[in-house]
Amino acid sequence: MTMSLTPTIRVQSEDFDLQKEVDKLTAGRTDIGAVVTFSGLCRDEGGALSALELEHYPGMAEAEMRRIAELAIERFSLQGLTAIHRYGKIAPGENIVLVIAASPHRQAAFDGANFVMDFLKTSAPFWKKEHAASGEARGWVPAKDADDSARDRWSKITESPARGG
């Protein structure tokens, strides 16, 4: 039986510190063997963008991230999971999103972080608006079919047994 585990979920305008968040997740633990950290950053698209503006649905964003995190914890028997998503205006080079997954061996941590990101992109209520280098708003980023495909592949993959790390 796995112990129930509460993921750390945050939606915030301020930046986050990768190392601090990893330290918080692993503090006092001697059973964790693998920590996978994914961070998503704002790109300038070859100098075309001055910022991305992230809008979110307060309340639902957190609830949906928590739901996804709980699915990942159960599916990959994770020992710890942190998901942080920023909102507001974010400049190129700055952090947008952070996912940390911890498990006894590496495969579950890699898969867990990957799974959370794939679902987060398609079902957590966030929207990106581009701001051009001139400062003008360029419009909303269109949703990509590739993101739906990335999410859907998880329903085709059969449960993988825990492997050595």
């Binding site: 998503g40 609830a63 992109k121 957590a124 209520p125």
Partner: peptide, 29 residues
């Protein structure tokens, strides 16, 4: 569409909804 902050399909009933969110496909992450 989300009913009471949970995703809902277009054929779902809205009975009991206090809050209904309407938005484009999501592009976070």
């Amino acid at each position: 569409v989300a009913i009471n902050q949970e995703h809902a399909e277009h054929d779902e009933p809205i009975a009991g909804a206090r809050e209904i969110g309407i938005f484009p496909p999501m592009t976070g992450g």
